[in-house]
Amino acid sequence: MIGVPSRVAFLGLGHMGLPMAKNLVAAGHEVHGFDLVPAAIEAAEAAGIPIAASGADAVADADVVITMFPAGCHVIDAYRTELLAAARPDTLFIESSTIAVDEARAAHALALAAGHRNIDAPVSGGVVGAENGTLAFMVGGSDEDVAAAMPLLEVMGKRIVHCGGPGLGQAAKVCNNMVLAVSQIAVAEAFVLGERLGLEHQALFDVVSQASGQCWSITTNCPVPGPVPTSPANRDYQPGFAGALMAKDLGLALQAIEQTGTDARMGRLAQQLYAAFAAGEGATRDFSGIITDIRDDRV
């Protein structure tokens, strides 16, 4: 098992990655970061996280490498071109991006072929969860490697579920986000219907949040201003989790639906709605902001 504290290379210091890295530092781990975006580098340096000159430099002396990248192609490319070759033998790679199941398994195979260990550990909980260290991790990999990663995962998250072998963390994530997308659309539609029937937002919230329609999309991510002061609706739908990212995740869900021949009609429809939302203002707004498209009959 990896000792504590560990030397960690954290690659991808955006809205999620930076607070995760900061929590590791606060817990006593030595973290060296890298990102391609100048603003992310500046924010990390302001938080006291040393920035390496390249991804290869960041991983060279690391015990553990955590990646939080936008898409699977970035993960595979980084593994192939520099990270695996630069890391010391038997380095543990924790892949926390949300990518396709087959991409996670490809990354796992590349890591093993290069003499390293790898788990996929995508997260749920958004920026607030990353900041508070309360993320949920869905983990795929061997029992031994997951156990080795636990001291770090437990710093960044509140709930860690070992879902099975390589790629199955990503499988759980794609299923979870499909549920989330469908429920967020349903909650948004209900509030628009309530508005047109003359219901006050607070009255509808008070009913649904304590009745059989209760779900995270209403109690935490309520899509209208007022009932949940911390929801994105009360800050003009600033993400949070942007609509473009939900559209990306639903694209992964659609890929899995088609590969497995699953009759998932609600998942397909959610993918279509979020693709349209992300093509407009939803690209940079929280995914709960899809209520604005529903309200304006744009979906």
Rank of each mutant, 00 (worst) to 15 (best):
V192G: 10
V192S: 08
L193N: 02
G194M: 09
G194R: 04
E195D: 15
R196D: 10
R196L: 11
L197S: 12
G198E: 03
L199G: 05
L199D: 05
H201M: 01
H201D: 15
A203S: 14
A203M: 13
L204R: 05
L204F: 13
L204Y: 08
L204G: 11
L204A: 11
V207K: 02
V207D: 02
V208E: 00
S209H: 04
S209G: 04
Q210H: 14
Q210D: 11
Q210P: 00
A211Y: 02
G213S: 10
G213D: 03
G213C: 04
G213Q: 03
Q214M: 14
C215K: 06
C215S: 15
C215H: 05
W216H: 07
W216K: 05
S217H: 01
I218G: 03
T219W: 04
T220F: 05
T220D: 10
N221Y: 14
P223N: 02
P223D: 00
P225Y: 07
P225N: 09
P227V: 07
P227R: 03
V228W: 02
V228A: 07
P229V: 10
P229T: 09
T230C: 00
T230L: 03
P232Q: 06
P232M: 06
A233C: 06
A233R: 02
N234M: 07
N234Y: 04
N234P: 10
R235N: 13
D236A: 14
D236W: 01
Y237T: 04
Q238P: 00
Q238I: 10
P239S: 08
G240K: 07
F241I: 12
A242K: 08
G243R: 08
G243K: 09
A244V: 10
A244F: 00
L245Y: 00
L245M: 13
L245P: 01
M246F: 09
M246Q: 13
A247T: 04
K248Y: 03
K248R: 11
D249C: 11
D249G: 12
L250V: 11
L250W: 02
G251T: 12
G251K: 07
L252T: 08
A253T: 15
Q255L: 13
Q255N: 14
